[in-house]
Simulated assay, not measured.
Amino acid sequence: MTLLLMAAGSGSRYGKLKQFDDLGPEGEFLMEFAIYDAIQNNFEQIVVITKKENVSFLEEHLRQRLPDHIKLDVLAQEISDLPKGVDYKGDRKKPWGTAHAVWTARNVVNGPFVVLNADDYYGQSVYKKAADFIKSNNEAYALLGYTLKNTLSEHGSVSRGVCKVDGDNLVSVNERLKLVQHGNKIVDEDTGLEFTGEEQASMNFWVCRPSIFDKIESELKIFLQDEDKIATSELYLPFMIQEMLQANEVEVKCIPSGGEWFGVTYASDKEKAVANLKEKTEEGLYKTPLW
């Protein structure tokens, strides 16, 4: 099984590259806890998608720490990495989005894989749930969801994909751009929509199959023909999966993670993240140092 971490963001709201901030008790990156938890659940390949200038540093950093039997691939998400026959002559600096980040791994991933953000903490139990799903299901995709009220930030609004489910089947994920807590309800200040907080939210923890690569490639070709989109727009992984779902090309399960999530969207989130990781280490959930 493969764990794919997306670590190519620029950290504009955080103020620096949060993927490489020393949040653990011994200076560990947040992604190292995800990698550790995945390895404990028999994941054997780690793929990290990052910026070209960070590849060598991150590959050396992780190779020195990971067990020898773990396959490690650190890949650069590059603007020039496009489908055969497609060319782009513009001067865009911003990456093509999370779907393109996943597509970057098409030549090194050969089986089911888990995708997640390198700058989020997803809890330990979710990796077992993902591994169990992969072992018991040969075709379906899955979203490991989190209770919406537990995914907010005390320091500003957040964007979340709010899930609509039917039993254990994912029906849709609707992106809400400015979610904030108002009393006992959650309001999307962008649309005025209200939520109870008990809804499942997507925190970008997906179980995918290699079929996603063909879908992303075909959508990239269409995307790159639109002059308006290629200026500033991005291709997002959840949109790709939702399109496949609505076209009945895949079945997607929504599995409540039952775990704790926290992230570092804002610089002020760091103190809480550091305290959380320190507490979990002191409780014996993690070794220190981690490796």
Rank of each mutant, 00 (worst) to 15 (best):
A99F: 05
Y36T: 07
F43L: 09
F262V: 01
V173W: 01
V109Y: 00
L72T: 01
G9W: 04
A247L: 12
W96M: 05
E175G: 07
E26K: 15
I79P: 01
E154R: 08
H69C: 12
A131W: 11
V108W: 04
E189V: 09
A275W: 03
K84D: 10
Y122R: 02
G183L: 04
K272L: 12
K178P: 02
P67S: 02
K128F: 14
L143V: 09
T50D: 02
C254Q: 05
M244Q: 11
T147F: 10
T104R: 08
D168R: 10
D81K: 10
D81W: 06
A140C: 06
E198H: 11
T151F: 06
L17A: 06
D166C: 11
T151W: 07
T98K: 07
K71G: 13
L177W: 10
L277M: 12
N150D: 10
V114P: 08
E59C: 14
D91K: 15
P210W: 08
A7L: 06
D37H: 11
T50R: 00
N204E: 03
V74L: 08
T151E: 09
E217A: 08
N248K: 14
R160N: 02
G183R: 03
N204V: 06
A34P: 01
N110Q: 13
V252C: 12
F239P: 01
D188I: 04
Q77A: 12
D228E: 15
I222K: 14
N276Q: 15
Q64C: 13
T191F: 03
A38E: 02
V250A: 09
F33I: 00
D87A: 14
E198D: 11
I35R: 01
N107K: 13
A38P: 04
I134L: 13
G167S: 11
V252A: 09
Y266M: 08
I35G: 01
D87Y: 14
Q77G: 04
S136Q: 10
L58M: 11
D214N: 14
Y121H: 08
V250H: 00
A38L: 10
N174G: 12
F205K: 04
E198S: 09
E251N: 11
N276V: 07
L285W: 15
V187A: 08
V86T: 03
C163D: 00
M1N: 08
V171M: 11
D226W: 10
N137Y: 11
V207W: 00
W96E: 01
N184V: 06
I255Y: 00
G156I: 04
G161D: 03
A140S: 11
T151P: 06
L285Q: 04
Q246E: 14
D226Q: 14
K52S: 13
V162N: 01
D91H: 15
R65N: 11
F223W: 13
A76Q: 08
Y146L: 00
S157Y: 09
R13W: 10
Q124P: 07
Y286M: 05
T288F: 10
K93G: 07
N41W: 12
A38F: 01
F213E: 04
Q77P: 01
G259H: 09
W96G: 05
G183E: 12
S125P: 03
I216N: 02
V187F: 08
L23D: 06
E154C: 09
